[in-house]
Protein backbone atom coordinates (compact mmCIF):
# COMPACT_ATOMS: atom_id res chain seq x y z
CA UNK A 1 0.00 0.00 0.00
CA UNK A 2 1.53 3.35 -1.07
CA UNK A 3 1.19 6.58 0.80
CA UNK A 4 0.57 9.62 -1.33
CA UNK A 5 2.82 12.65 -1.17
CA UNK A 6 0.74 14.44 -3.80
CA UNK A 7 -2.93 13.97 -4.51
CA UNK A 8 -4.47 16.42 -6.99
CA UNK A 9 -8.01 16.22 -8.29
CA UNK A 10 -9.47 18.42 -10.99
CA UNK A 11 -6.88 21.18 -10.63
CA UNK A 12 -7.46 24.20 -12.84
CA UNK A 13 -5.56 27.46 -12.97
CA UNK A 14 -6.03 30.43 -15.28
CA UNK A 15 -3.99 33.58 -15.83
CA UNK A 16 -6.46 36.02 -17.24
CA UNK A 17 -7.78 34.42 -20.41
CA UNK A 18 -5.02 31.83 -20.52
CA UNK A 19 -5.92 28.40 -19.17
CA UNK A 20 -2.66 27.08 -17.69
CA UNK A 21 -4.12 23.94 -16.10
CA UNK A 22 -7.42 22.33 -16.95
CA UNK A 23 -8.75 19.59 -14.67
CA UNK A 24 -5.44 17.98 -13.82
CA UNK A 25 -5.34 14.85 -11.65
CA UNK A 26 -2.03 13.69 -10.21
CA UNK A 27 -1.03 11.08 -7.67
CA UNK A 28 2.58 10.72 -6.53
CA UNK A 29 3.32 8.11 -3.88
CA UNK A 30 6.16 8.56 -1.43
CA UNK A 31 9.42 7.08 -2.64
CA UNK A 32 8.59 7.62 -6.31
CA UNK A 33 10.39 9.79 -8.84
CA UNK A 34 7.65 11.16 -11.05
CA UNK A 35 8.42 12.89 -14.33
CA UNK A 36 6.39 15.75 -15.69
CA UNK A 37 6.87 16.34 -19.39
CA UNK A 38 5.17 18.43 -21.97
CA UNK A 39 5.84 21.06 -24.61
CA UNK A 40 6.50 24.68 -23.69
CA UNK A 41 3.38 26.29 -22.28
CA UNK A 42 1.84 22.95 -21.31
CA UNK A 43 1.45 24.01 -17.67
CA UNK A 44 4.34 22.11 -16.09
CA UNK A 45 5.80 25.08 -14.22
CA UNK A 46 2.35 26.17 -13.07
CA UNK A 47 1.69 22.71 -11.68
CA UNK A 48 5.08 22.60 -9.96
CA UNK A 49 4.38 26.06 -8.54
CA UNK A 50 1.14 24.79 -7.05
CA UNK A 51 2.97 21.85 -5.48
CA UNK A 52 5.46 24.27 -3.94
CA UNK A 53 2.69 26.45 -2.55
CA UNK A 54 3.58 29.43 -4.71
CA UNK A 55 -0.02 29.84 -5.82
CA UNK A 56 -3.39 28.25 -5.28
CA UNK A 57 -5.53 26.49 -7.83
CA UNK A 58 -8.68 28.20 -9.04
CA UNK A 59 -10.62 24.96 -8.73
CA UNK A 60 -9.93 21.40 -7.61
CA UNK A 61 -8.33 19.95 -4.52
CA UNK A 62 -4.67 19.47 -3.77
CA UNK A 63 -3.28 17.50 -0.85
CA UNK A 64 0.44 17.79 -0.20
CA UNK A 65 1.95 15.36 2.32
CA UNK A 66 -1.51 14.77 3.66
CA UNK A 67 -2.34 18.45 4.11
CA UNK A 68 -5.11 19.95 1.99
CA UNK A 69 -3.82 23.28 0.68
CA UNK A 70 -5.99 26.24 1.60
CA UNK A 71 -6.66 29.46 -0.23
CA UNK A 72 -3.44 31.07 0.97
CA UNK A 73 -0.34 30.10 -0.98
CA UNK A 74 1.95 28.13 1.33
CA UNK A 75 3.29 24.61 1.22
CA UNK A 76 3.47 22.44 4.31
CA UNK A 77 6.71 21.47 6.01
CA UNK A 78 8.67 18.84 4.15
CA UNK A 79 8.25 20.36 0.69
CA UNK A 80 11.30 21.77 -1.06
CA UNK A 81 12.51 22.46 -4.55
CA UNK A 82 12.54 25.13 -7.20
CA UNK A 83 10.86 26.24 -10.39
CA UNK A 84 12.41 28.36 -13.13
CA UNK A 85 15.88 27.67 -11.78
CA UNK A 86 17.20 27.72 -8.24
CA UNK A 87 17.09 30.94 -6.24
CA UNK A 88 20.59 31.90 -5.19
CA UNK A 89 22.09 35.11 -3.91
CA UNK A 90 25.17 35.92 -5.98
CA UNK A 91 26.84 38.03 -3.32
CA UNK A 92 26.94 35.04 -0.95
CA UNK A 93 29.20 32.02 -1.24
CA UNK A 94 27.70 28.57 -1.77
CA UNK A 95 28.17 27.85 1.92
CA UNK A 96 26.71 31.21 2.97
CA UNK A 97 23.68 30.65 0.75
CA UNK A 98 23.03 27.37 2.50
CA UNK A 99 23.82 28.75 5.96
CA UNK A 100 21.40 31.64 5.45
CA UNK A 101 18.73 29.19 4.37
CA UNK A 102 19.43 26.92 7.34
CA UNK A 103 19.18 29.90 9.70
CA UNK A 104 15.92 30.88 8.06
CA UNK A 105 14.51 27.47 8.89
CA UNK A 106 15.82 27.72 12.44
CA UNK A 107 18.76 25.36 12.09
CA UNK A 108 22.24 25.98 13.38
CA UNK A 109 24.51 26.42 10.37
CA UNK A 110 27.16 24.24 12.07
CA UNK A 111 24.85 21.29 12.53
CA UNK A 112 22.59 21.68 9.53
CA UNK A 113 24.62 19.32 7.39
CA UNK A 114 25.83 21.94 4.92
CA UNK A 115 29.10 20.16 4.20
CA UNK A 116 27.22 16.93 3.71
CA UNK A 117 24.78 18.28 1.12
CA UNK A 118 27.57 20.14 -0.66
CA UNK A 119 29.45 16.85 -0.91
CA UNK A 120 26.34 15.05 -2.17
CA UNK A 121 26.00 17.42 -5.12
CA UNK A 122 29.76 17.61 -5.72
CA UNK A 123 30.31 21.25 -4.78
CA UNK A 124 32.71 20.84 -1.85
CA UNK A 125 35.59 22.36 -3.78
CA UNK A 126 33.70 25.58 -4.52
CA UNK A 127 31.88 25.85 -1.20
CA UNK A 128 33.52 29.15 -0.35
CA UNK A 129 33.24 30.71 -3.81
CA UNK A 130 30.59 33.34 -4.43
CA UNK A 131 27.58 32.04 -6.35
CA UNK A 132 28.03 34.97 -8.77
CA UNK A 133 30.67 33.02 -10.68
CA UNK A 134 28.80 29.72 -10.82
CA UNK A 135 27.84 28.09 -14.10
CA UNK A 136 24.23 27.08 -14.72
CA UNK A 137 25.05 23.48 -13.81
CA UNK A 138 26.69 24.51 -10.55
CA UNK A 139 23.72 26.71 -9.73
CA UNK A 140 21.40 23.79 -10.37
CA UNK A 141 23.40 21.59 -8.04
CA UNK A 142 23.53 24.28 -5.35
CA UNK A 143 19.76 24.68 -5.69
CA UNK A 144 19.41 20.94 -5.14
CA UNK A 145 21.71 21.17 -2.11
CA UNK A 146 19.52 23.95 -0.72
CA UNK A 147 16.49 21.72 -1.13
CA UNK A 148 18.25 18.76 0.50
CA UNK A 149 19.12 20.89 3.50
CA UNK A 150 15.49 20.88 4.58
CA UNK A 151 15.33 17.05 4.47
CA UNK A 152 12.32 17.11 2.17
CA UNK A 153 9.56 14.50 1.99
CA UNK A 154 8.46 15.97 -1.32
CA UNK A 155 11.07 17.38 -3.67
CA UNK A 156 9.85 19.46 -6.63
CA UNK A 157 12.42 20.23 -9.33
CA UNK A 158 12.00 22.15 -12.56
CA UNK A 159 14.49 21.06 -15.21
CA UNK A 160 17.11 19.89 -12.69
CA UNK A 161 19.45 18.64 -15.41
CA UNK A 162 19.73 21.98 -17.21
CA UNK A 163 23.34 22.88 -17.79
CA UNK A 164 24.75 19.81 -16.07
CA UNK A 165 27.87 18.14 -17.39
CA UNK A 166 28.00 14.33 -17.27
CA UNK A 167 29.67 14.33 -13.85
CA UNK A 168 27.13 16.78 -12.48
CA UNK A 169 24.31 14.74 -13.91
CA UNK A 170 25.66 11.65 -12.24
CA UNK A 171 25.75 13.47 -8.89
CA UNK A 172 22.18 14.64 -9.29
CA UNK A 173 20.86 11.24 -10.40
CA UNK A 174 22.61 9.54 -7.52
CA UNK A 175 21.11 11.99 -5.03
CA UNK A 176 17.60 11.64 -6.42
CA UNK A 177 17.79 7.85 -6.50
CA UNK A 178 18.95 7.80 -2.89
CA UNK A 179 16.20 10.18 -1.80
CA UNK A 180 13.55 8.07 -3.48
CA UNK A 181 14.98 4.94 -1.87
CA UNK A 182 14.65 6.67 1.50
CA UNK A 183 10.99 7.42 0.82
CA UNK A 184 11.08 10.97 -0.54
CA UNK A 185 8.70 11.67 -3.39
CA UNK A 186 10.33 13.56 -6.26
CA UNK A 187 8.39 15.40 -8.94
CA UNK A 188 10.56 16.75 -11.69
CA UNK A 189 9.97 18.32 -15.05
CA UNK A 190 12.39 17.93 -17.89
CA UNK A 191 12.72 18.30 -21.62
CA UNK A 192 15.47 15.68 -21.50
CA UNK A 193 13.67 12.41 -22.20
CA UNK A 194 16.80 10.41 -21.43
CA UNK A 195 16.83 11.92 -17.96
CA UNK A 196 13.19 11.13 -17.40
CA UNK A 197 13.69 7.56 -18.58
CA UNK A 198 16.78 7.13 -16.45
CA UNK A 199 15.20 8.50 -13.28
CA UNK A 200 11.45 8.21 -13.30
CA UNK A 201 9.27 5.21 -12.66
CA UNK A 202 6.11 7.09 -13.64
CA UNK A 203 5.50 10.01 -15.90
CA UNK A 204 2.73 12.50 -16.55
CA UNK A 205 2.51 14.11 -19.95
CA UNK A 206 0.83 17.50 -20.10
CA UNK A 207 -0.34 19.29 -23.23
CA UNK A 208 -2.17 22.63 -23.23
CA UNK A 209 -2.89 22.31 -19.53
CA UNK A 210 -4.38 18.82 -19.68
CA UNK A 211 -3.03 15.42 -18.70
CA UNK A 212 -2.70 13.30 -21.85
CA UNK A 213 -0.94 10.40 -20.16
CA UNK A 214 -0.06 9.47 -16.62
CA UNK A 215 1.39 6.15 -15.55
CA UNK A 216 4.46 3.89 -15.55
CA UNK A 217 7.04 4.26 -18.29
CA UNK A 218 6.65 0.57 -19.10
CA UNK A 219 3.00 1.19 -19.89
CA UNK A 220 3.94 4.03 -22.16
CA UNK A 221 6.47 1.89 -24.03
CA UNK A 222 3.91 -0.86 -24.45
CA UNK A 223 1.45 1.45 -26.16
CA UNK A 224 0.59 0.21 -29.65
CA UNK A 225 2.70 2.76 -31.48
CA UNK A 226 5.14 2.51 -34.42
CA UNK A 227 8.70 3.58 -33.72
CA UNK A 228 11.70 4.21 -35.92
CA UNK A 229 14.68 1.92 -35.36
CA UNK A 230 18.26 2.21 -36.52
CA UNK A 231 19.60 -1.15 -37.71
CA UNK A 232 23.30 -1.92 -38.21
CA UNK A 233 24.11 -5.30 -39.76
CA UNK A 234 27.00 -7.27 -41.23
CA UNK A 235 25.52 -6.95 -44.78
CA UNK A 236 23.62 -3.69 -45.20
CA UNK A 237 22.48 -4.27 -48.79
CA UNK A 238 21.05 -7.74 -48.09
CA UNK A 239 19.51 -6.59 -44.83
CA UNK A 240 17.81 -3.71 -46.59
CA UNK A 241 16.28 -6.17 -49.07
CA UNK A 242 14.99 -8.36 -46.24
CA UNK A 243 13.51 -5.34 -44.49
CA UNK A 244 11.84 -4.14 -47.66
CA UNK A 245 10.09 -7.46 -47.99
CA UNK A 246 9.05 -7.83 -44.36
CA UNK A 247 5.42 -7.37 -43.35
CA UNK A 248 4.65 -4.31 -41.25
CA UNK A 249 8.10 -2.81 -41.73
CA UNK A 250 8.67 0.40 -43.66
CA UNK A 251 12.11 1.54 -44.77
CA UNK A 252 12.78 5.17 -43.98
CA UNK A 253 14.87 6.56 -46.82
CA UNK A 254 15.81 10.09 -46.11
CA UNK A 255 18.51 12.33 -44.79
CA UNK A 256 18.49 9.86 -41.92
CA UNK A 257 20.76 7.58 -43.92
CA UNK A 258 23.60 10.03 -44.05
CA UNK A 259 23.02 10.94 -40.43
CA UNK A 260 23.14 7.32 -39.28
CA UNK A 261 26.01 6.19 -41.48
CA UNK A 262 26.12 4.40 -44.80
CA UNK A 263 26.07 0.95 -43.21
CA UNK A 264 22.96 1.59 -41.15
CA UNK A 265 19.38 1.95 -42.22
CA UNK A 266 16.22 3.10 -40.49
CA UNK A 267 12.90 1.29 -40.44
CA UNK A 268 9.51 2.13 -38.90
CA UNK A 269 7.53 -0.70 -37.32
CA UNK A 270 5.60 -1.97 -34.37
CA UNK A 271 7.46 -4.08 -31.81
CA UNK A 272 6.07 -7.46 -33.12
CA UNK A 273 7.06 -6.61 -36.69
CA UNK A 274 10.55 -5.72 -35.50
CA UNK A 275 10.79 -9.07 -33.74
CA UNK A 276 9.91 -10.79 -37.02
CA UNK A 277 12.44 -8.69 -38.93
CA UNK A 278 15.28 -9.64 -36.56
CA UNK A 279 14.37 -13.31 -36.91
CA UNK A 280 14.31 -12.99 -40.71
CA UNK A 281 17.71 -11.30 -40.79
CA UNK A 282 19.22 -14.05 -38.66
CA UNK A 283 17.63 -16.70 -40.85
CA UNK A 284 19.21 -15.01 -43.87
CA UNK A 285 22.63 -15.26 -42.20
CA UNK A 286 22.90 -11.53 -41.55
CA UNK A 287 24.33 -10.58 -38.21
CA UNK A 288 22.52 -7.81 -36.36
CA UNK A 289 25.20 -5.66 -34.79
CA UNK A 290 23.05 -2.88 -33.47
CA UNK A 291 19.32 -2.24 -33.09
CA UNK A 292 18.05 0.81 -31.26
CA UNK A 293 15.10 3.19 -31.45
CA UNK A 294 16.00 6.44 -33.19
CA UNK A 295 13.98 8.30 -30.59
CA UNK A 296 13.16 6.84 -27.19
CA UNK A 297 9.71 5.32 -26.64
CA UNK A 298 8.98 8.13 -24.21
CA UNK A 299 9.97 10.79 -26.68
CA UNK A 300 7.97 9.13 -29.42
CA UNK A 301 4.94 8.88 -27.14
CA UNK A 302 5.44 12.46 -26.04
CA UNK A 303 5.55 13.70 -29.61
CA UNK A 304 2.58 11.59 -30.68
CA UNK A 305 0.41 12.50 -27.70
CA UNK A 306 1.18 16.18 -27.67
CA UNK A 307 0.82 16.54 -31.44
CA UNK A 308 -2.49 14.73 -31.19
CA UNK A 309 -3.61 17.11 -28.47
CA UNK A 310 -2.47 20.16 -30.44
CA UNK A 311 -4.31 18.90 -33.52
CA UNK A 312 -7.47 18.41 -31.49
CA UNK A 313 -7.62 22.00 -30.25
Amino acid sequence: MDTLAVRARGISKCFGDVVALDGVDLDVPQGQIHGLVGPNGAGKTTLLGLLLGLAVADTGTLDILGTPLGRAPAAPDGVAGFVDGPGLYPSLTARQNLAALAALRGSDARTAGIDDVLAQVGLTDVADDRARGFSLGMRQRLGLAAALLTRPRLLVLDEPSNGLDPAGKRHVHRVLDRLAAEGTAVVLSSHRMDDVEALCSEVTILATGRVVFSGPLTKLAAENRELEYRVLTSDPAAAREVAAGADGVALVESAARSRHGADAFVVRALVPAMDDLVAALVRAGIAVRELAPVVSPLEAAFLALTEQQEAGR
Binding site: M1, D2, T3, L4, A5, R7, R9, D25, L26, D27, P29, Q30, G53, D63, I64, L65, G66, T67, A74, A75, P76, D77, G78, V79, L104, R105, G106, R153, T204, R210, V211, V212, F213, S214, G215, K219, L305, Q309
Partner: peptide, 26 residues
Protein backbone atom coordinates in the same frame (compact mmCIF):
# COMPACT_ATOMS: atom_id res chain seq x y z
CA UNK B 1 -5.44 9.36 -24.38
CA UNK B 2 -6.91 12.18 -22.39
CA UNK B 3 -7.54 10.61 -19.03
CA UNK B 4 -5.14 10.03 -16.18
CA UNK B 5 -3.95 6.54 -15.56
CA UNK B 6 -3.53 6.95 -11.84
CA UNK B 7 -5.88 5.21 -9.48
CA UNK B 8 -8.48 7.40 -7.87
CA UNK B 9 -8.42 8.09 -4.19
CA UNK B 10 -9.51 5.17 -2.17
CA UNK B 11 -8.28 2.64 -4.74
CA UNK B 12 -5.30 1.39 -2.85
CA UNK B 13 -3.48 4.60 -2.05
CA UNK B 14 -3.71 6.25 1.35
CA UNK B 15 -2.80 9.76 2.18
CA UNK B 16 0.32 10.29 4.26
CA UNK B 17 -0.05 11.71 7.78
CA UNK B 18 -0.67 15.44 7.57
CA UNK B 19 2.27 17.84 7.66
CA UNK B 20 1.87 21.25 9.25
CA UNK B 21 2.32 24.49 7.34
CA UNK B 22 4.64 26.56 9.51
CA UNK B 23 5.85 29.84 8.05
CA UNK B 24 9.25 31.14 9.06
CA UNK B 25 9.07 33.73 11.84
CA UNK B 26 9.49 37.41 11.00
Amino acid sequence: MTATATPAAGEGNVVTPAAATRPVSV
